[in-house]
Design a protein around this nucleic acid. Sequence first.
RNA 1: GCUGAAGUGGUGGAAUUGGUAGACACGUUGGACUUAAAAUCCAAUGGCCUGUAAGGCCGUGCGGGUUCAAGUCCCGCCUUCAGUACCA
Length: 937
Amino acid sequence: MSYDFNTIEARWQNYWAENGTFKADNNSDKPKYYVLDMFPYPSGAGLHVGHPLGYIASDIYARYKRHKGFNVLHPQGYDSFGLPAEQYAIQTGQHPAITTKENIARYREQLDKIGFSFDWSREVKTSDPNFYKWTQWIFIELFNSWYDKDTDKARTIDDLEAIFTSEGNAKINAVCDEDITAFTAADWNNFSSKEKQEVLLKYRLTYLAETEVNWCPQLGTVLANDEIVNGVSERGGYPVIRKKMTQWSMRISAYAERLLQGLETIDWTDSLKESQRNWIGKSVGASVTFKVKEHDEVIEVFTTRPDTIFGATFMTLAPEHELVAKITTPEQKAAIEAYIEATAKRSERERMADVKTISGEFTGAYAEHPFTKEPVPIWIGDYVLAGYGTGAVMAVPCGDQRDYDFAKHFDIPITNIFEGIDISEEAFADKEKTIIANSDFLNGLNYKKATKTAIYELEKLGQGQGKTNYRLRDAVFSRQRYWGEPFPVYYVDGMPQMIDVAHLPLALPEVEKYLPTETGEPPLGRADIWAWDALKGELAKNEDIDNVNIHPLELNTMPGWAGSSWYPFRYMDANNDHEFASAEAMQYWQNVDLYIGGNEHATGHLLYSRFWTKFLKDRAYITVDEPFKKLINQGMILGTSAIVYRISGSNTYVSKGLKDQYETEELRVDVSLINSSDELNIDALRKWQPQFNDADFELEDEKYIVGREVEKMSKRWFNVVNPDGICEQYGADSLRLYEMFLGPLEQAKPWNTAGITGVHSFLKKLWKLYHDGETFGVTDTEPTKENLKTLHKTIKKVEEDIENFSFNTSVSTFMIAVNELTAQKCTSRAVLEPLIVLISPYAPHIAEELWQKLGHDESISTAAFPVFEEKHLVESTKQYPISFNGKMRFTMELSLELSKDEIEAAVMAHEKTQEQLAGREPKKVIVVPGKIVNVVG
RNA sequence: GCUGAAGUGGUGGAAUUGGUAGACACGUUGGACUUAAAAUCCAAUGGCCUGUAAGGCCGUGCGGGUUCAAGUCCCGCCUUCAGUACCA
C-alpha cells in the first residue's frame, strides 16, 4: 500500500471543511490562543512558494497549541483595498471589484491545497462593505475625539465642547494645531457654528488641513512617509514631489510617547522595535526663541543642546521658512530669492543624494542672543529641513559638525565654549566629556547641569523651555484613488460633516473610469450616482442646504492601511452586524498572541495598528493596549534565476563556461527550463519565447549550462516557483515540511526545488513505518526501551523547537526518529500513536490518515500532545570525554550514579589515564560534561 | 555615518547556550537491484599527512585575549545583508 498523497490530502481537506474542524468557539473553558498571519493583498500573480512560509509556521503553531489544549483562533482574510489591487485592475483593464474577486478565489484555491487550519467562517475582506462599514465607523470616532494630555488619553469632542462652553480653552492641555488662539467661554458661545467647527477641527484626532504632502504624479495620489523609500514611491519607484493640498490627517503624533513606551511591553525583535523607535524619533532638548532685530518677529528653534547656547554664532532657517521673506534686507533680497528658487528646483532625491555640498545665503537680518544680546546673523541653508522641529536652528559651530562646516565655508566666526578642547579641525559633540567654558553662568558645568541651568535661565527670560521633539509626523489619510474606503463625510459650507452611523456603510459607487487623474482630482468625482438617498435626507434637514457645494461628499478614499489597522479585532466576531466586534468576544480573545508576517510593515502597518488600538482602548471599545503581543518576521524566500549569455549583437548563446571568451549580455530565462544540474532544455526554450526560435547555442560538453543568481522571487526574473505544482508532484505535506526545513524562519533563504526529495522520502519512510508490506502493520506489542527512548527524545526536542520557533530542526528530528524506529523494527502502537501526533502540525494530512488507520474517529487535531517522560532518556552509564591537561582526550564509560569523588577516583584508576600519566606529573584531569573535576597531581 | 542582524564543508543549515564542530538534508562518488531508466536500498563524502588501516595535524571571516576547554565569552578589525539618514 503506497503513500498516495494526492488522494489523502484531498480527502482530509474535504473532511476539515465539511466538519468545520478548525472553527474557533467564542465561549470555551479552555485557555485562548490567537495566532494571526498578516493577511495578504490578493494580487493578480497568485501565490508563489515564498508566500505561504509564514502561514505554514503559524499553522504549525496553531495546530500545536490545539494539541496543548488551547482554544485557538486562527483566521485568515484579505487586504483587498489599496494600490496594488487597483494597479493590477488598471493593467488588465478590468474593474477592481471583479479582479479582486477573481484574485481572492485564486488565492483561496491555492491556500486550500496547502492544508491550513484556518477558521474560514471568520474570513474578512477590507473591501467588503460589511467590513469597511466599521473602518468608516472608527474614522467617525476619531473625528469625534481629541487628545487630552492631562489624562493622557483620547476623549470625546462632546467633552471638549462642554469645557469650551463653560471655561473656554485656557485650561485645555490638548494635542492640537499650533496656531490655536486662546478664547474664553464667552468668546466660544459667541462663535458662529462655522467658527466653532473650524476650532474643533484643530483638536480632532482626524482633521482636515492644508498640508505639504508627498505627491506622486505617476500614481496620481499622495503617499504617507512610510510609503516612500529613498525619495521614490515604495510601489513602482516613481518620483515624489512636495505639494500643498487639503487632506485628511491622522493625529498619530498625539500617541508618539505611548507608542514608544508600549514597545517595552511587547515581545518583538530588537531590530523591529529599534525601527519603530527611530521612526518615532524622540529627542529631548529645549525650544528657544530668538528676537529678530528691527522686527517684531521671533524665531523659534529646537535644540538638544541648550547648554551650548553661548556658542551660537549664527542661525540657519530652512529656505521654506515663513519668516525668510519678511526679514530679508533689500540688499540680500535678490540673492535669497535665487537661492530659494534653486533649492525648490531640486527634487527630494537630489537633495538627499547630495549632502556634502554646503550651500546657503545670508538674509542680511540679525537676531538677538537671549543672554549676551549680541547680534546673531540669520542665514538660510538647505541643510535645515522645513519638516523637522521648527525649520530653524541656532547654529553652534563648535558643537555641531554641520554648523561647523557651514561656518567654515562662509567664514562665520566660531566661538569655542568647551573647556580644554581643540576645535580647530572639527566640532566637538561628545556630551559626556563636555565641560562648558566661556559661557557666563554656565562656566564649569557639565552637559547635564548646564542644560538644566540654561533651560531655567531661558524660562526666567520667557525665551525658552524644556521640550521634547518627535520626528513622527501626523499621517496623511486621503488618497486620490478609487479603490479604497469612501470617507463617511459630506461638506456643508465647506466644513466636514460625518454621516449618521445608522447610514453606514457608505458604499463605494460604480464609476465609469476608475483610473487616477494627473491633476489630483479624485476618480470618485466622476461618479454618476454618487448620490445616496439617506444622505440626501440628511442634507435636506440642514438649513444650510443652499450652501452645499457641487460635490457635497468627500471624494477622496482612505489609504491601504485603514482597514489593516484594526482587522485583528474583527476576526474575534467577524459576522457581527451591530458593532465591530462584541465586548464579550473581545474580552475573551484580548489581543493577538502570535503575529507572523514580513518585516516590510515595520513602520507602516505595525505603527498605525498600534495607534488605532490605543485609541480604541482610550475610548473604551477594547481593553488591550497593544494589538500584537509577540511578533515574528518570516524571512523572504528567494528565487534562483537562470541566466543565458547572448553574444552581443548576435542571436547566439554561449554556455556559462565559455562566456568569458566573448562580449555577452545576460538574459534571464524561466527556471522551469533548467534541470537540477543547471543544464538548459534548449527545445523547451525555443518554444518558451519566439526570440529563441532560431537562436544558435554554443555548448560545453554537449550541454548548455546556465548561470544562477539568487534574487527576489518575481515574475520579471522568471524565477517564480508555484506551490500548486509542488503540491501535485510531492504533496502539500512535503511542501510544508520542506519550507520549514529550508532554514530558520526569520532568515532569507533561496528556494531550490531539488532538495524537496529529502523530506518527500521521509514521508514515504514514515508511511512505511506504519505499514507491513501491503497491510497496516501497527501492533499492540510492548515498546522496547530503545523505542521509548527514541520517542521521548523526539517529544522533548519537538516541543522545545516549536516553543522556540525553530521549526527547521524538528524536521531533522522527525527524520532521525523514523530512521531509528525503522531500524528498530518498531511496530508498537504505544510508540507510533504519539509519534504521529508530534508530526501532525507539520504534515497534517498524512497524520490524519494514519490516525484514522490507528482506529480513531475524530480528527487528530483533538489529540493531546504526548507527555515527555525524562525516565526514558536516563541511562545507567554515560560516555564521558576525559580531557587531560587540556590536550589529551579519550572517552570513558561511567555510571551516572557516581559522585564527584567517585568519578575522580574512577578516572585516576582507569588504565588509559595511567597510560597517559605514565612518567608525568599531572596538574589536572578534567571530566566533562557538567562539573569540572580537578584531579590534583 | 548611525542602528540592527549575520559570517561554520561543494550547497541549505545543526551544535544541549562554554564541553567529542559539521547533526539532518541536498549534491557528488561508488555499489546493489534492473535489459535499461526511474524509484528504492547500502557505503563514502571538511582539508591535509602516512601505501592501507590504526592514527595524527589543521580547521567555524581575520588578529589578539580569558579558560583545563571557545563556533559560542571579552577586545580590536574585515565583509555581507536589512533599515535609516543633513533629525538640530
